[in-house]
Design a binder for these strands. Structure first.
Lengths: 227, 227
DNA sequence: CCCATAATTAACCAAATGGTGATTTGCGCT
DNA sequence: AGCGCAAATCACCATTTGGTTAATTATGGG
């Protein structure tokens, strides 16, 4: 086995360990010694491989951002489906959310890494929403920007503030039970947002017309419906 | 002026400075030396007054939680109004949001301080929602827990992830422009959520609930329970 | 005015931190 | 076998950290 004295392998081990550590403690709170211990590697190797704690952090952000971009690119256009899909994604990627959150808190408004890539990623989703709006699949009323933020907000929030989610619902946001309730709510919300009277204006309209019910698979399949 | 050698005054100065520092850097990132400098006070005084960094932090949480509870108690029952009111509140209390967020990240799911007080605070709002639901002022469909989380989510999100808000909208979430757009969106959303397909039975019934103010306790124990 | 006491300060400390220089160890090659 | 070189280790550093010991200064009461 080439596992001894294999630099690539060592790098991977460090990256994996560093991801956990950064997710758990943030950049400032993370300890290089702890990363080394978790990785089962001499602390010196961190600096040998990545030069500095900062560089290591950047490297991890790059990787994670790449992943998330790939996710958004393959995301379904139908609103309820997207909501469900996102919620599931966040649930199984709490670490990524935490990383994101740490960064917002520690680093401030300007992304330290891959600003362009991120902008691109967001733009793609916004574009989809805009097209959906033009084609009448979602209401014309709201700003797509704001709508997008709201959709992400609703799905991500319980994992961003697990404390509050637990206080409100009485159970852990990581539990199956919570996920079920959330799905149910997201369905309701999605229907609300898409169905009633979006043909013309955002005028409140009494004709709550049941519309094509979106098929949602709770399993995390690719759910392809590109563009 | 009695500003010289006044312990209460000194405490206040420290608390104010510590609030900024903790909001900016979190607990781990905050530096006692920086707090002292900001407060224009000898570092030793922090420990003289509060015993430890940890205690100082707890004290601040206590105060802020008290504030937020008072806010929620006086909050309007009408949904759109509540949305608007919350959004405005968050906007002018970004520091409080940050503190909250830091805590979620650094301290984990279990509140370190005032768990009971918080639960009470959430319960009050949930109760209002439930009543609104019974009286038909908001739809019967959704779980109040989930609805509550979603409402908070939508209003708080831009300030939680200013990076993303900026990427999506192109402007700073702290700008006037953003606030305007958000208000417009919240109106739209509120209408959507309340109007279609149920009867509106307006009954301006407001019950003021007397609230016991908790005594500040430096030795607040985390109320441990294995999770 | 004096003195006990409380508020304030200065100097200091042990532990921990990110980071390095020097050294050893093992793999691949001839 | 022996050599070159990269991978891995070890011991160490300068700095920063929360926290403390002990000295100093003001204040209010007698």
């Amino acid at each position: 086995m080439g596992a001894v004295r294999d630099l690539e392998r060592t790098k991977e081990k460090i990256l994996r360990a560093a991801l956990s550590e950064f997710c758990a403690k943030g950049f400032a709170g993370a300890r290089t010694a702890a990363i080394a211990r978790r990785a089962g590697v001499n602390k010196r190797m961190i600096f040998y491989c990545f030069g500095s704690k900062e560089n290591l952090y950047r490297e991890i952000l790059w990787r994670k951002i790449g992943e998330s971009m790939r996710f958004f690119e393959s995301e379904p256009t139908e609103l309820v489906a997207a909501l469900i899909r996102w919620a599931q994604k966040w649930r199984q990627e709490v670490n990524w959310i935490r990383l994101w959150e740490w960064e917002a808190l520690e680093r401030g408004v300007r992304p330290v890494v891959a600003e362009e890539a991120r902008r691109e990623c967001v733009k793609v989703v916004l574009e989809k929403l805009r097209r959906a709006q033009e084609e009448g699949r979602i209401p014309q009323g709201p700003d797509v920007d704001q709508l997008f933020l709201a959709l992400v907000a609703v799905t991500v929030f319980p994992y961003t503030y697990p404390q509050l989610a637990r206080l409100a619902s009485g159970i852990s946001p990581m539990s199956e039970e919570f996920a079920t309730r959330q799905m149910k709510f997201l369905h309701w919300l999605g229907e609300r947002l898409t169905c009633a009277g979006f043909e013309k204006t955002a005028e409140p309209n009494r004709t709550a017309k049941p519309q094509r019910r979106s098929e949602v698979d709770h399993t995390d399949k690719p759910a392809q419906s590109p563009v």
